[in-house]
Design a protein around this nucleic acid. Sequence first.
DNA 1: CTTGATCCTCACGCTACGTGAGGACCTAGC
DNA 2: GCTAGGTCCTCACGTAGCGTGAGGATCAAG
Lengths: 239, 239
Amino acid sequence: MHSAPLKVGDLARQTGLSVRTLHYYEEIGLLSPSHRTASGHRMYSAGDVARLQQIKSLRELGFSLEQITACLDKPGFSPLQTIELHLSRLREQIALEQRLCARLEGLAHVLRAGEDVSVEQLLQTIEVMTMIEKYYTPEQLAELKQRAEAIGPEKMREAESAWKTIYDDMRAEMQNGSDPKSEPVQQIVKRMRVLIDAFTGKNPEIERSLNRMRQQEPAMRDQHGMDPELHEFIGKAMR
Amino acid sequence: MHSAPLKVGDLARQTGLSVRTLHYYEEIGLLSPSHRTASGHRMYSAGDVARLQQIKSLRELGFSLEQITACLDKPGFSPLQTIELHLSRLREQIALEQRLCARLEGLAHVLRAGEDVSVEQLLQTIEVMTMIEKYYTPEQLAELKQRAEAIGPEKMREAESAWKTIYDDMRAEMQNGSDPKSEPVQQIVKRMRVLIDAFTGKNPEIERSLNRMRQQEPAMRDQHGMDPELHEFIGKAMR
DNA sequence: CTTGATCCTCACGCTACGTGAGGACCTAGC
DNA sequence: GCTAGGTCCTCACGTAGCGTGAGGATCAAG
């Protein structure tokens, strides 16, 4: 009536584990076969198989072999507490990975937009992203992301090139020796206003964050071929 | 103008890494200090520091040290593809962990309901849960879960005890020798119907799954003190 | 009796470092 | 010049959960 004891290979096939795994489980005292033949071959009884099933169940729940050993061998063991601890850690890890996922998605998005995906481009994008995350609150970032999706990628590229022409025009005015308060310069400032409002959504908090970042991060300016004099000139023009 | 080279301890403090980590990065050829003193002390230049910053950025994105080495040292390297691969694996892992989380939550929920949280209780609950997951499709499980939440835990416990009295009453009828088709037995069947409908939500798919499980899993019956004769009797009564 | 499958133990490999051990070097104060 | 405390060096073992051989014994079938 009782099933015959199994050899390692048979048990391995039956459970889908490897022979090495069963050896290891014995090595750490988690599952020892209840019998050995005279020649030293392991013989697993039905009870051993049942225990292995339990081990597999607990493994699928993500417990470590050490925890499983404690759970199965210590008599007064509280599983609920262990599970809750395990759960809290798992939830934390998921939250962490989701944040990471969001960052990677953003990164992939940016890289897909530009065609050159060199390592330098990657590293600079990362740098910009971490910098951005430093200056904006998570809520602001969510708002920015939402607005970016509403606007669409073509409009984003248009804005990108609009900034370039604005900088070119500004530089031309500066090299002409124009007064920052003069009419043609103020016209360019109006074009900047439109773009900035499109970016910030006229949210004053976001505009403050943007200004803080522009002031404190010299690396940001280099991106668009911005030099200190031009920066100074634009600063005057915007007042 | 250029910053002085740093010793390991200084670099470690500056980056928040450990000295051992920096030693290790050199060991695997990821970051070697560009100079050593005559006595063998490592001296990290500003360029080394910059490279370390890049390494840190890529590490925060979850890349392995081997991937980072490849990324930084091979000239023709496509980051986008790597990131997308990384992303897909990460998303898969998150999905896996979320399923695991749901299972652990269900487990914790069941364990909190009953007061005895012994290891046997835990293992039996796991067994029942995996069995349930085998017979119902994920959509059906979601439906069941939703209904369970709508009903609330007290009603669940009421249903639990209602089942017990139904089994008791049925057993009494059986031991009285009643005909399964007789009026009092059919009254009990009606009470069963109500409970089953409450569980299945009158969804015929779910009822089919339930019947399949009841037929194929003898272990399920033992839970409520069900024996083969009683099972047989109830089967006749329900036709 | 041979042959191929299976079994045994031993032992190194993997990741990304932590944690000493034992000894050389550096800087400050005396 | 000497000492003391801090910092540096290399070497080497430990982690979790096995994978992957090496080299040899045992088993079941023909």
